[in-house]
Simulated assay, not measured.
Amino acid sequence: MKKALICGISGQDGGYIAKFLLQKGFEVYGGSRDAQMASFKNLDILGIKNQIQLISININDFRSTLQTIIKVKPDEIYNLAGQSSVGLSFEQPVETLESITIGTLNILEAIRFSNLPIKFYNAGSSECFGDTGEEAATEKTPFMPRSPYAVAKSTAFWLVNNYRESYQLFACTGILFNHDSPLRPERFVTKKIIAAACRIYKGSTEKLQLGNVEIARDWGWAPEYVEAMSLMLQQPQPDDYIIATGKTHKLVDFIDYTFKYLGMNWAEHVTVDNSLLRPADLKTGRANPQKAYDKLGWKAAFSMENVIENMIAFELERL
């Protein structure tokens, strides 16, 4: 039985990749800073918590990281840990940089020290590209990060590349564009929109306050994106891949579809709050996921509209 260690298992992607690997017959170890105190709410929602061996690991601490890897001896490691909010990274730039870059470096160093044949997946981000404009980003598009989060993810990307080239580690970065699910917390704008729209549909008189609704992103369905993560580690050679739908929409279109699906007019329930604007933001994110299709045989099946419908169904059932 193959073993996988998932760092950051309590998050959205951690839960879905854990479920996917369990279905593939993996023995799954879930890492968290304090496994005895963490709630692992998402694992409960997915109904898999009792199938995972939960362990305490702080990837910002090299000793903790190395000890865990030597003890578990995983075949695959998925690094999904670190501060994950672009907006919050402006308020906590040091925590963001340290949790993403130092954590990634410690895992890479621990794999090298252990001398175990481990395959490593690193969670990259489309934010690294900055504003793509009308040009869809490929794996060869230069990085132009516009937030502390994007700077941190860019640094981690080049660390992975450096260790792959210098030490022949099987290390990959998945450059994932926006991907959502019911497991997202409400600090993510997509979940914030869905949750508020559903509450209003149920009778709430609240106003949904948003920042810039003219930004454009490529939104996909998280459960199918984690399949691409696994596929990267099954290839003969390690490489980096963009994972996206290839279709970009404005946030206002996301809002409009959400409210229309619930039979409402979004303009009656949404207000723009300038205090929610970021110090810097990218206007448009466009992706060309052709390499993932050519090399991995992976293609997104869910559209933005499918994502919205699935999230609404979950939210209404919960209310």
Results as ranks from 00 to 15, higher is better:
L108R: 06
Y121H: 14
G297W: 04
S89V: 00
L116E: 08
V151T: 01
P74W: 04
L66N: 09
I70A: 13
I194G: 03
L22P: 00
L296C: 07
S84I: 06
M37F: 10
G285Q: 13
Y16G: 04
N288Y: 11
S154Q: 01
S99Y: 04
G15P: 07
G31R: 12
Q168K: 09
I100A: 00
C128R: 14
A18I: 07
M229S: 02
R33F: 09
P289D: 08
P185R: 12
L54H: 09
G203P: 03
S126M: 11
K207P: 03
L159E: 12
E224V: 10
L169S: 09
I111Q: 02
W298M: 00
Y241S: 05
K260I: 08
T141L: 01
A81P: 01
S303V: 02
T190A: 13
M144W: 08
L54I: 10
G263K: 09
V272I: 15
A301T: 12
E309P: 04
Q237V: 10
K283E: 11
Q290R: 08
D44F: 06
K49M: 09
M304C: 12
A110P: 06
R199Q: 14
G130D: 07
K49S: 08
G82W: 01
M232Q: 02
T258Q: 01
L66V: 06
R286H: 14
D34W: 08
L276K: 14
R278K: 12
Y225P: 00
G31D: 13
K247Q: 13
A216S: 05
D240C: 12
I45S: 12
D240H: 05
E91H: 12
S181M: 01
E305Y: 15
V86N: 07
L97V: 10
W219N: 08
W266A: 02
E315R: 06
Q235K: 03
E268M: 11
I308D: 07
R199C: 05
F259V: 08
Q237M: 06
F188V: 05
D239I: 01
V270N: 06
S39F: 02
D131Q: 13
F62I: 12
I242L: 15
Y225W: 07
E135K: 14
G103L: 03
A197C: 04
L108Y: 04
G246Y: 10
D240I: 01
F254K: 09
S166E: 14
G263E: 03
G133Q: 15
G297D: 03
Q12G: 06
